[in-house]
Design a protein around this nucleic acid. Structure first.
Length: 705
RNA sequence: GGGCGAGUAGCUCAAUGGUUAGAGUACGUGCUUUACACGCACGGGGUUAUAGGUUCGAAUCCUAUCUCGCCCACCA
């Protein structure tokens, strides 16, 4: 047992140790030994079933596992609840791509068959990502794993919808909304991604209607637009009421080029006189600002672009059926021929695209369900303002509150098939995926609760509110906000006390890691190459104060070397003869009463200083600092200094026993300190330590004080 | 357009107004020292982005500028 190989071999260890942990049951809070009165809960941000583990997932899994293992060692009843998200649009897209290879669309299959097929796909691929979490050493309670389309979860979603419905916070109506012509669904404002486009600004002359007067009169008014094709749906031209240049034109009519329609020139404060010519075409059906203007002026809404992104029958016949892009070209060409195109300027701006398929979105009028946000936004602000939910880093609280300050109603219906159906008769749409993920922290714990008197103490009673939510800053508004108001509204308690916004892992050059650009680093490859512990330590080591991590493999190499150091220091200890020391007797208190050398005293002192400061660091999410301190302590104080001195001390008979005890004491406590960061190797060594009454696993040892 | 963050050794990062600005890595020179060459002992390498200012004292605080990154935004 005591013979360890010269170099640490993670491949030989990791699979075996993970099985040992799973078999122990200690991932499950109900199976943890001891009293453990206090709970500590983290609910995982559920990865999409379509996802593969990327560096962001890995980083967050490591962070959560460090916290959970640390608290478990500290004697908490720890629950790290895992699960996956059905990822409505993203999953549907994957299935549609599969179908496309067979030359089919989802409509060829029909709703029922399509969903059936998605479930089959889900059974096969949906849990891959959770298996990858296991490779990292994640100590999740897999027996409590949840999926957002589980039966119970679906019940929770229906319950939530009906709750809002009864409260009158849900309404259905025709509004101008974001529409993805490829996914064939509405999207909320948060589901857009803005892309830079080097486009054009077209200056178009709208002829003024003759009013019989003679003399030299202005013959037209010029507007600037980035989307000339939408002019087919124009209902007015608007200028700023304070704009003197157009004073004499207000109230007059122009003839909409390419059509025979007459449209008025109106004033509206939304128009910026400094942009373009100061006159703007108003297309209520295909622009949000124009829609708003149209409500004020009671303008009709003429939809000239349909759900497929094609020109409708409302437009002149020569444009009907063209894609909006084709229509743009034709409109420009026709205007040119009519000498109504004054000039064209280069203009680069940001255009919205679908966050799932990158198709440029259209704004179209559509009948959708909306959730009123006024009250919910207020509810969401309270716990953050009152400090009941604390963000780390704190500055994210500001952007959280700012965003809530001017929020619009949430369009929650989607015209896809994979998801939760709207629970009302005659409704065929499904709910926004984020509507269901908003319930995640409590729906996973058994909300809505069973009728009173039925159940004993439920998971919801025991583990809610959760302690920490660790997540990416990119989904603060998309997800965190919505969990907070949902938790407050449905459970009347905050869903989590602290929100840790973890750093973003960037490439060495400081660019975003992206699979499509080939700039991503696959954490599974790192585990293969260096081992899970090395990967974990190397990544944690880089989580310092700043918000971003520029990933370099050097740090993983450092992690690997460090693991080897831990391994060999342990090997040295185990090689000492006589080998069997009753480690159970090794207590700090007993050590105090012995004749200790100054080296002995020093290493004990530094060890306890390190423990204290690691606790403080972890309490404050200073993962990198904690890792650095443990590293320095173990390598320099313990190995370089104390182990070297111990070799001399052990040659002296009177110091031999003390020294051995201290070596083991320091090693054992180091293993505990190291365990949250490098769980596999520390467990493996622990299992080999010559101790009486040893625990089944290092996981349930006592954290040193 | 608004907000936030960063810029320190070749690279990735520390240093929370106070000795000579430190680690890892890379580089150079020695070492088969009773665990570890994935190691040990040394060494070179810095105008702390730039320009001002506050202070006995500034990488750190203030102002401006430059560069990079992120979030938010219905200038058509």
């Amino acid at each position: 047992m005591r013979n360890l190989s010269k170099a640490y071999n993670p491949k030989e260890v990791e699979g075996r140790i993970y099985k040992l942990w799973e078999k122990s049951g200690f991932f499950n809070p109900d199976k943890l030994p001891g009293k453990r009165k206090k709970t500590y809960t983290i609910v995982i941000p559920p990865p999409n079933i379509t996802g593969e583990l990327h560096m962001g997932h890995a980083l967050n899994a490591i962070i959560q596992d460090v916290l959970i293992r640390w608290k478990r060692l500290q004697g908490f009843k720890t629950l790290w609840l895992p699960g996956t998200d059905h990822a409505g649009i993203a999953a549907q897209n994957i299935l549609e791509k599969e179908l496309k290879k067979e030359g089919k669309t989802r409509f060829d299959l029909g709703r029922e068959k399509f969903i059936e097929r998605t479930w089959k796909w889900m059974e096969r691929y949906g849990n891959i990502i959770l298996e990858q979490f296991k490779k990292l050493g994640s100590s999740c309670d897999w027996s409590r794993a949840r999926f957002t389309l589980d039966r119970d979860y679906s019940k929770a979603v229906r319950h939530a919808f009906l709750h809002y419905y009864k409260k009158g916070w849900l309404y259905k109506g025709k509004r101008v909304i974001n529409w993805c012509p490829r996914c064939q669904t509405s999207l909320s404002d948060l589901e857009l991604e803005y892309k830079k486009e080097r486009g054009k600004l077209w200056y178009i002359r709208y002829p003024l209607k003759r009013q019989g007067a003679k003399g030299k009169r202005q013959k037209y008014i010029t507007v600037a637009t980035t989307r000339p094709e939408t002019m087919l749906g124009d209902q007015a031209i608007a200028v700023n009421p304070k704009d003197k240049r157009y004073k004499n034109l207000v109230g007059k009519k122009t003839i909409l080029p390419l059509t025979t329609r007459e449209i008025p020139i109106i004033t509206d404060p939304l128009v910026d006189p400094k942009f373009g010519t100061g006159a703007v075409k108003v297309t209520p059906a295909h622009d949000l600002k124009d829609y708003e203007i149209s409500l004020r002026h009671k303008l009709p809404i003429l939809q000239v672009i349909n759900e497929k992104g094609e020109i409708t029958k409302e437009a002149p016949s020569s444009y009907q059926g063209l894609s909006s892009f084709e229509a743009r070209q034709k409109v420009v060409e026709d205007l040119k021929n009519l000498s109504l195109l004054e000039k064209i300027e280069d203009y680069s701006h940001q255009i919205p695209s679908c966050y799932r398929c990158e198709t440029i979105i259209e704004l179209i009028p559509s009948e959708q369900w909306f959730l009123k946000m006024e009250k919910l936004a207020k509810i969401a602000k309270i716990p953050v303002k009152e400090g009941k939910i604390k963000f780390q880093p704190k500055n994210f609280e500001k952007s959280y509150l700012d965003w809530l300050a001017n929020i619009r109603d949430w369009c929650i219906s989607r015209q896809i098939w994979w998801g939760h159906r709207i629970p009302l008769k005659g409704e065929t749409d499904v709910l926004d995926t984020w509507f269901s993920s908003a319930l995640w922290p409590f729906a996973t714990l058994g909300w809505p609760p069973a009728p009173k008197g039925r159940a004993k103490i439920s998971d919801l009673d025991r583990f809610y509110p959760t302690d920490v939510l660790s997540t990416d800053r990119g989904i603060i508004n998309l997800w965190v906000v919505r969990m907070i108001f949902s938790g407050m509204e449905f459970v009347k308690k905050v869903p989590f006390r602290r929100v840790y916004i973890h750093p973003t892992v960037l490439t060495r050059e400081g660019k975003r890691m992206s699979k499509s650009l080939g700039t991503g680093v696959d954490p599974i490859n790192l585990i293969e190459k260096y081992g899970a512990d090395a990967t974990r330590f190397g990544i944690v080591y880089q989580i310092m104060g700043g918000q971003d991590i520029k990933f370099i493999e050097d740090n993983i190499i450092m992690g690997k070397k460090f693991c080897n150091k831990i391994w060999n220091a342990s090997r040295f200890l185990l090689m000492q003869k006589p080998p069997l020391i009753d480690a159970d007797l090794v207590r700090r208190s007993t050590l105090k009463n012995k004749n200790l050398t100054s080296a002995d005293k020093k290493i004990l002192k530094v060890l306890h200083k390190t423990i204290k400061s690691v606790n403080t660091d972890l309490d404050n999410f200073r993962f990198g600092q904690a890792a650095h301190k443990i590293y320095d302590f173990f390598w320099h104080d313990f190995c370089d200094t104390y182990i070297e001195i111990s070799k001399k001390q052990m040659t002296k008979e009177e110091k031999k026993e003390n020294t051995r005890e201290i070596l083991l004491y320091v090693l054992l406590n180091s293993l505990k300190l190291l365990h949250p960061f490098v769980p596999f190797i520390t467990e493996e060594i622990y299992q080999k330590l010559p101790m009486k009454r040893k625990k089944k696993s290092l996981m349930i040892e006592e954290w040193p004080k």
